[in-house]
Simulated scan of single mutants.
Amino acid sequence: MDTLLSLRVFTEVADHKSFTAVADRMGMSRAMASKHIQHIEARVGARLLSRNSRNVSLTEAGARYLVTVRRLLEDLSDAENLISTDTLVPRGTLKISMPVWMSTPAFARMLSDYHRDFPHVVFDFDLSSHKINLVEEGADLALRVAFKLDEGLIARKLSEVTFQMVAAPDFLDHTTRPQTANDLIDAPLLAYSPVASDGRIKFGGSEGLDVKMRPVMVSTNESHLHLSALSGMGYAILPNWMTKGDLDAGRLETVLPQVTWPKLHVHAIYADRSYLPAKVRSFLDFLASKQGLESGLS
Rank of each mutant, 00 (worst) to 15 (best):
H174F: 07
Y192W: 14
R144E: 13
F147P: 00
F147C: 01
R156I: 08
D183A: 08
K202V: 09
V135Q: 10
L149A: 14
G204Y: 06
G152C: 08
P169N: 03
A146E: 14
S193K: 05
A146M: 01
A168R: 00
L190Q: 09
I201S: 06
D140H: 15
D150E: 14
S197G: 10
H115S: 15
G204D: 08
L127N: 02
V135I: 15
K148S: 14
F171N: 07
L149P: 05
K157T: 12
L153R: 04
L134Q: 12
T180L: 03
R200Y: 08
D173F: 01
R144P: 01
K202F: 10
A142T: 13
A196D: 14
D150V: 00
K148Q: 14
F118C: 11
E207G: 03
D198I: 00
N133A: 11
T175S: 13
N182Y: 09
L127C: 01
V121D: 09
K202R: 14
S193P: 00
F147L: 10
L134Y: 04
H115Q: 15
A196I: 03
L143Q: 04
A187G: 04
D140N: 12
P169H: 06
R200E: 09
D183C: 02
A142Q: 13
P119I: 03
T176Y: 10
L153D: 08
P194H: 11
F163V: 08
A187C: 03
R200G: 01
S193H: 00
D173K: 14
F163A: 04
I185V: 14
H115C: 05
R144A: 15
R144D: 08
L184D: 10
L143C: 07
A139T: 02
K202G: 02
A196K: 05
P188H: 10
L158S: 06
Y192K: 00
V166M: 08
G199Q: 07
G204W: 01
V166K: 08
F123M: 00
S159G: 12
D126Q: 07
K131S: 12
L158F: 05
F118M: 04
P188K: 03
S206V: 13
D170S: 13
F123R: 00
A146G: 11
D170E: 15
F203H: 10
A187L: 01
K202Y: 09
V166A: 06
E137N: 10
N133P: 05
D170W: 02
M165N: 04
V121T: 12
R177C: 09
D140S: 03
E151I: 02
T162C: 07
V122W: 07
D186W: 02
L172Y: 05
D117V: 03
K148R: 12
V121S: 11
Q164F: 03
A167K: 09
V135Y: 05
L141G: 07
H120L: 15
P169T: 04
L143E: 06
E151R: 07
Y192N: 01
L153G: 01
L149T: 06
L143W: 06
M165W: 04
